[in-house]
């Protein structure tokens, strides 16, 4: 499964080569042209096929970001411990006692923590600070560690993808579903024929500020755009009757507004019409937090109508996320139908 290969790949923001190679290999037979721009975005074009259009839209951009959150080595202590900074939004609490891989040589490491036996009461309830954490590569001093890693190397969680056996929701677990699941959906869409030029844009550096999408949207200059995401799912049991963000297993999530974009109302309508026609389960993203590539894309040049469709993913930005393969498949179906409807233009 492509999602498995993508999830296992090493690809923090600014270091997306491995992910890009996997994607290009997967889509090469379905595209007419591709290029990699200065920021590392993979811009793949599947030209219009079949019946001609009314004239709008001629170019449609669908974006998914290749990068994941990670760490970067900032300093090697004389004892060989590696200090690090965050690349993108990582919660310090999820880092403790986690296995990571570092740098081009994919050196294994462990983020250390004091054993519970030695912890004082107050240490157990205290939030750790990033600057107090370190990665242990099993080296005994700086010179040994420097043979394995160097300052500036990236690290990501070393989680391996797996199916959650017997899961009624057909759940899978792995790292970086934000946004490798979007990449997987986008690769599927490239197998379909549409009456407009489809620019499948696999972007870089989303997690550090939608940077790849900003320049890619300028270059592609599309008439309409979509961002595909693996989004916040906060549907755990709770006492308060408040928003779950999204719910896993309830279908693709359509965004109305987040921190980065207010979605074009015509595109929300298009997505809802598509879901209704094929009776695809779907939901709204019930939170206005988070930003997506659509935030950068819709502000390119004179402005571009843009929407966001997401696969609900639990525990994103942590070492292990979970999503439902049914949600993934429904997202492909919804997007395929929406793109076909778009051949007739935007709804009023």
């Amino acid at each position: 499964m492509l999602l498995e290969r993508l999830s296992n790949a090493f690809g923090p923001s600014g270091c997306e080569e491995e992910v890009r190679d996997i994607i290009l290999d997967a889509i090469k037979d379905d595209i007419d042209e591709h290029r990699v721009d200065a920021l590392g975005n993979l811009i793949a074009l599947r030209k219009a096929r079949g019946s001609s259009l009314k004239g709008f839209p001629r170019r449609v951009m669908v974006a998914a970001h290749m990068d994941e959150v990670g760490l970067m080595i900032t300093h090697i202590e004389k004892e060989g411990w590696l200090r690090f900074a965050r690349v993108g939004g990582v919660d310090a609490r999820v880092l403790l006692a986690k296995a990571v891989v570092i740098g081009d040589k994919r050196v294994p490491g462990v983020i250390g923590i004091k054993p519970i036996h030695l912890m004082r009461e107050d240490e157990r309830t205290k939030m750790p600070r990033i600057e107090d954490l370190y990665i242990d590569t099993g080296s005994s001093d700086r010179s040994q560690a420097e043979k394995l890693v160097k300052v500036g190397d990236y690290a990501v969680f070393s989680t391996r993808f797996a199916a959650v056996k017997e899961s009624p929701l057909r759940a899978v677990k792995g790292k970086a579903f934000d946004d490798r699941v979007g990449c997987a959906v986008l690769a599927e869409l490239l197998k379909q024929d549409y009456a407009f030029d489809l620019y499948a844009t696999f972007t870089t550096q989303e997690e550090v500020g939608l940077r790849g999408a900003q320049v890619a949207a300028y270059a592609v200059d599309p008439d309409v755009a979509f961002a595909l995401e693996g989004t916040i799912c906060d549907d755990m049991p709770r006492k308060r009757d408040v928003s779950p963000g999204t719910r896993m297993g309830q279908g693709p999530a359509i965004t109305i507004m987040d921190r980065s974009v207010i979605v074009d109302k015509r595109l929300v309508k298009l997505l809802l019409q598509s879901a209704d026609k094929l009776e695809i389960p779907h939901q709204f993203k019930q939170s206005v937090t988070g930003g997506t590539d659509a935030g950068a894309i819709h502000l390119a040049r004179e402005g571009i109508p843009a929407a966001v469709v997401s696969v609900p993913s639990r525990y994103i930005h942590s070492p292990v996320c979970m999503l439902s393969l049914s949600d993934l498949e429904h997202t492909v179906t919804l997007m395929d139908e929406a793109l076909h409807r778009l051949e007739g233009g935007l709804p009023e």
Binding site: D241, V242, S243, P244, I256, M257, Q286, S287, V288, T289
Partner: peptide
């Protein structure tokens, strides 16, 4: 902007 409707019909919201 409404983000959630609870069982009794009260609306939770985010800021615009």
């Amino acid at each position: 902007i409404v983000t959630h409707v609870d069982q009794k019909g009260f609306l939770r919201f985010g800021a615009v």
